[in-house]
Design a protein around this nucleic acid. Structure first.
Lengths: 237, 237
DNA sequence: GCCACGCTGTGGCATTGGTCACACCGGGTC
DNA sequence: GACCCGGTGTGACCAATGCCACAGCGTGGC
């Protein structure tokens, strides 16, 4: 782990401010505001597998992923899980409890060694009230998520497993801006994301390869035949 | 249909303001603000079955249900539909497009003769900017929906059909504040809400009756054994 | 180099739940 | 009263997919 001497502190803060600027939620803010946020946020490290927030906890912080990856996950009585999302560098979570004071709606778990920036509720609220631009950004972010959630519901309700996988892959490809999907996902993870079993995902991925829809190399998936995948993601055959 | 003479107009507006006060999204506002909103909103009638907004339309209005019921629905290529929600008096829709200028994410269809209050984007934005309380209310509403959407994803991914139905019934019971479920829902509608077929819903409802979990009288369902239903809604047996 | 562990590939069986095909029923309408 | 129509009950069949079992394989640690 990198040591953080007192000397480095201010530089570190500069970095944070610059880092925040690259995030949609903060990007609209001016330098002074960014600087202030940078100062309000504390850095925190979580080892792989550690639980960052528990469902039903009272929540009082917003988290931004500085480094690493986390999963947002719902866990049923029987221990089976659904992954609502995998968040990478620059993504954030925990806003909901900040806004409505309700308990956390899901667990968040570090998928790798992860470094987060933490912002406390009161600090956040003060900034929002002082600067309406933050409120708009936040609303924009919430609507984006809501649209994604609706799309996910749509997929779960109308598509079979191949369709859901196709859609997932297309989403990731779009996100990464190329045919290559950056995030290294295990079949198990994909299965949890689309509500299917590991085995079915395994077989389906294999079928996709055989049909030439995708290519897999060293755990990295790339989209080879986008139109055909789109086809799969639309109608249930 | 009721006639709306010119003489009645001002009274009608008063009514609207009072009506808005009963809605969480507006309830925080003072009388003057409420009055202003009342004046900005136009009333509009939709016959049963009419489409109020189309998916992919550019959206520029917020709608509040004054009377009647609408369904928010996603429709697949093949015409099959998923109902994201059924909205009754006092509920509203169309906020998303107001916030982020994106096209509508779903169709909204009148389930009965329906009367709506319509507010245009520009008017709405002006009010939000003039009064931060509106922004907070709106964020609260968005987070509420997001939590519900996540719960729905959870249900679709982890529960079997009986479980999803049990959960739906419990939700409605909770909403109505008693064991009796007010909304008259057809099996077909329920099926679309939980991503199942009409027949399976029919059979399951019947089983629930036989097991004494619910009672059905004249199309009205009431919860008879809440703990047992909760049980169903948790673990997949 | 060897082992352990996490990930993947595959077969086989059991179950869920969708689809099709009808029958029935109650309430409006002419 | 005769009819129609939307909603419901039910049986039979079958495809999709979960679950179990086990084998192979790569990679990192010792």
């Amino acid at each position: 782990m990198m040591s953080t001497s007192l000397l480095e502190r201010p530089i570190r803060n500069m970095d944070n401010a610059a880092f925040l600027r690259s995030i949609p939620l903060f990007s609209k803010l001016d330098d002074a505001e960014l600087q202030r946020f940078g100062e309000l946020m504390r850095e925190k490290n979580y080892p792989k597998g550690s639980v960052i927030v528990f469902e039903d906890d009272p929540g009082d912080s917003l988290f931004v992923v500085r480094d690493g990856r986390v999963k947002v996950v719902l866990i049923g009585e029987d221990g089976r899980e659904v992954i609502l999302g995998v968040l990478g560098v620059g993504e954030h979570f925990g806003e909901l409890s900040l806004i409505d004071d309700q308990p956390r709606s899901a667990h968040v778990i570090a998928m790798e060694e992860t470094n987060l920036l933490v912002l406390r509720r009161d600090d956040f609220r003060r900034r929002v009230e002082a600067n309406p631009a933050v409120a708009w950004s936040l609303m924009g972010e919430l609507t984006r998520r809501l649209r994604r959630a609706d799309a996910k519901i749509h997929g779960l309700a109308l598509l079979d497993v191949p369709g859901r996988i196709a859609r997932l892959l297309l989403d990731f490809a779009e996100e990464s801006g190329s045919d290559m999907i950056e995030k290294p996902l295990t079949h198990q993870t994909i299965a949890h994301m689309i509500g299917a079993s590991r085995e079915t995902v395994s077989r389906t991925i294999r079928d996709f390869q055989i049909q030439g829809l995708i290519k897999v190399e060293r755990r990295r998936i790339s989209v080879a035949n986008r139109p055909a995948l789109k086809q799969m993601a639309q109608a249930r055959v």
